[in-house]
Amino acid sequence: MPAQAPRWRTALRGVLNSRALRTHIGTVAGVTILAVLLWRLGTGVFLDGLRRIDGPALLAALAIGVLTTVFSAWRWQLVARGLRIRLLLGEAVADYYRALFLNAALPGGVLGDVHRAVRHGQSSGDMGRGVRAVVLERVAGQIALAVVGGAVLLTMESPVLAEARHLAPAVGLAGLGALAVVVALRMNRTPSSRRGRVLRATLGEAREGLLSRRNWPGVALSSAVVLAGHLGMFVLAARIAGSDASVAELLPLAVLALLAMGLPLNVGGFGPREGVTAWAFAAMGLGAGAGLATAIVYGVLSFVASLPGAVVLVVRWYQGLRPANRYSPVSAEKYAPKDAARLSSKAFPFSAEPSEGRPMTPESV
């Protein structure tokens, strides 16, 4: 007869296998990282960083946010055009601000982009292409971060420079091996394979959206400007937190922080970024406390930069509640039963009413 497992082990297994934990694992990880950092470094660093934020710093954050959001929305518009989806720049800016605010306000850091993708797909009348346009736009930003970040980490003094130099040959060989596998599969593919057709169609859309002759200059320029804005925000946060390190010292640390922010293990963006930044500052001899304060200030400035997205949410929610939208004295032919049912959904704060294949947005944005 097998021995019965201890109760604590059974209970722990039940907690780890619970659906609630799997759903909120990112939030739990982010809270755990922050708790450990505050336990080791104290809350004084956190409070001191917040006290240093003043009015000019908030205005600078808003200005950087306008720059990065407009260029991000332009990149999204270019990708959507490559996928033959209509998207006006003003509407893209409003939707992008809304997504940034939701990313900053909700756990996980990606729910705003998910909402943006679904709404764009609904408003364009092609859910698949709408979602893929958002995915490709985000991929373009990650590619820019990987290329520029890799160059910075391999050429400038950083905590990972020595390790990166040792790993570079292995990574290069692995890349060549992966390329050889792709070429071999391409040469031996079966034309009738459904999976192969789907893959070729996806790659074709990626090529049209990101690498076509008409799109790639704009995508590259916008990605470079957006990345420069994020790096500038990090340098500003370091200065506000009291760090006197040079820009050359801060750039590799900023790249590491941005890479950590890509992990979906955060609470409103806080979590891995603070842990990696504290470690990187300590490794560079700048102090873990200074790194934590810089990351905290950066998080606050990023949240402030996303606040226009809250205005977009409120405006659209108000537009959905206006009596004119519900009881407009127009003929019955204009509001057929199908349109009336569609209008009834506008009371939801996050709604974006489709109109002629594009989302409705305030003209002032």
Rank of each mutant, 00 (worst) to 15 (best):
A168D: 01
A201K: 03
S193V: 03
G141H: 10
R200V: 04
G196D: 15
A174Q: 08
A174Y: 10
I143P: 06
A162V: 13
L153V: 05
T155N: 01
P159W: 08
G177N: 02
L145Y: 09
T155S: 07
R165T: 06
V181K: 04
A144T: 02
L153E: 00
A144K: 04
S192L: 11
V182N: 05
V148S: 07
A164R: 03
S192P: 02
A174M: 10
G141A: 03
A184M: 05
A168Y: 02
V181A: 14
V182M: 09
M156K: 00
L167F: 11
N188T: 12
L161H: 09
P191D: 05
A180R: 04
T202S: 05
L176V: 14
L154E: 03
V198D: 04
L185W: 06
G149E: 02
Q142I: 14
L145A: 09
P159M: 12
R197E: 15
V171L: 15
R194C: 00
V139F: 14
V139P: 05
L173Y: 13
G175R: 11
R195M: 12
P191N: 08
T190A: 06
T202R: 06
R194A: 09
L185Y: 02
A164C: 03
A162H: 09
G172M: 12
A151L: 13
P169K: 09
V160P: 01
L161A: 02
A151G: 07
V152G: 03
T155C: 02
V182I: 12
L167E: 10
R186Q: 15
L154T: 03
T155M: 03
L179K: 11
P159C: 14
R189Y: 12
V139E: 02
L179C: 08
R195K: 05
L176I: 05
V148T: 04
A162E: 15
A170T: 10
V181T: 07
V148G: 04
E163H: 01
A178I: 14
P191M: 11
S193W: 06
G196P: 08
R195I: 06
G177Q: 12
L154P: 06
L154I: 04
L173A: 13
V160T: 12
L145G: 15
A168N: 01
A162S: 15
A146Y: 06
G141N: 05
V183F: 04
I143Q: 02
A140G: 07
T190K: 10
G150M: 06
A178D: 07
G149A: 08
T202C: 07
M187V: 14
A178C: 11
A184V: 15
A184D: 00
V182Q: 07
L154S: 06
R189E: 15
I143E: 00
A151E: 01
G196K: 08
G177R: 03
L167K: 04
P159G: 10
